[in-house]
Computed example of a mutant assay.
Amino acid sequence: MPPSALPASLAIDHAASDADISVLPRIFEDEITIAIMTRTLPADIVMSAQAQCTRAWQFSWLGSPDETMHKDLRLRLPSPDAADALIEDVQTLAEAVAYLFDTETVGIRLRHLDQTMCPRFHCDNLPVRLLTTYLGPGSEWLPDTAVDRAGLGAPIPGRPEALTDASAIQRLQLGDVALIKGSGWEGCETRGLVHRSPPMAAGDKRLLLTIDPA
C-alpha cells in the first residue's frame, strides 16, 4: 500500500504517519512519540458505530482480547444486532496491541461521549496508548515546538498556557489509529505526546476507543 497524503505532521520529526499498519511499530523508535495509521473507515463500521450512539454508555475491559471480551462487549452495546463490524474492529485492534507489546492483557475503553472529556492539553502518565475515533471529531495533539511543558497540569495562578502556537494543532481524522507515548515510557519521561479531546459543539456525539497494554 502506498504512503498516504500526509498533513503537516509529515514535517514533525517525532511523528510517523502512513496508511500501512507497518507504521505502528515505529512507536518503538526513540524519537517517535506518535505513530498514526491513517485509514478510511469502511461503511459497515461507520453504520455499526452510528447504531450504538442512541444513548450514553461506556464499556471497560481488562484482560485478554478473546471471545469472552467479544461476548461481553456485545452484551453492553445499545444495538447488539448492528454491532458485528464495530466489535470485529475493536477486537482486531486489541489483538494488535497485545501482539505488538507482547502481552496477554489489555485495558479497553469504548465510550460514547456527548461532551469534551479532557479539554486541556495534557500528557498521559502511562507508557503507551492506542486511540481511534469511530464517530465524531478525532483527538488533537501538539508537536513539541508548540508546547510549553511548564503549562501542563491543572490550571493554577501563574502557570503559563501549554499551547504556544494554535496554528500548530494537529487532529487525528475519523478512523485513524494512533499509538501515543506517555511519560511512563522509559526515556520519554519529559517528552510524552501532548494531546487533548477535541472541542465539541452542543449535539455532537463521539465514539472513542482507547487500548492500553497491561
Rank of each mutant, 00 (worst) to 15 (best):
L73H: 01
T54W: 04
I108E: 08
F101D: 02
W57D: 10
L110T: 05
S79I: 02
W141R: 03
L100K: 00
C118H: 09
P137D: 14
G138T: 00
V97Q: 00
Q52H: 11
Q58N: 14
V97T: 04
T105L: 10
M117Y: 10
D84G: 03
L86E: 03
A35W: 05
D102V: 07
T68V: 15
A96W: 09
D114E: 15
D124F: 10
M69G: 02
R74D: 12
A83T: 04
L130T: 06
L100Y: 01
A35L: 07
S60I: 04
L75C: 13
P65V: 05
R159I: 12
L86N: 02
F121M: 07
M47V: 09
L93R: 04
G63M: 10
G136L: 09
P157N: 14
C53K: 01
V90K: 01
T92G: 01
G136K: 02
H70W: 09
N125Q: 14
L100E: 06
D114F: 03
E88W: 01
F121D: 08
C53R: 01
D44M: 08
H122P: 06
D66P: 05
A49R: 02
A82C: 10
D124W: 08
Q52D: 14
Y99R: 06
L142C: 04
L75D: 15
I87R: 02
M47D: 15
F101H: 08
T103N: 09
T68K: 13
T103C: 14
T116G: 05
P119I: 05
I87L: 06
D66S: 11
A96Y: 06
P157A: 15
R39W: 04
A82P: 00
T68I: 15
T105D: 13
D72N: 13
W61H: 13
Y134W: 07
V97G: 00
R74V: 09
N125P: 08
I108L: 13
V147Y: 00
D124E: 14
G63I: 07
Q50K: 12
L113N: 08
V147S: 01
L77I: 04
R74Y: 12
D44Y: 06
E140P: 02
D148C: 12
V147K: 00
E95N: 10
R76D: 11
L75F: 12
M117I: 11
T105K: 09
L113P: 05
H122C: 08
E161Q: 13
E161L: 11
T38I: 03
I156E: 15
A98W: 01
H112Q: 11
T54C: 11
E104N: 09
M117H: 09
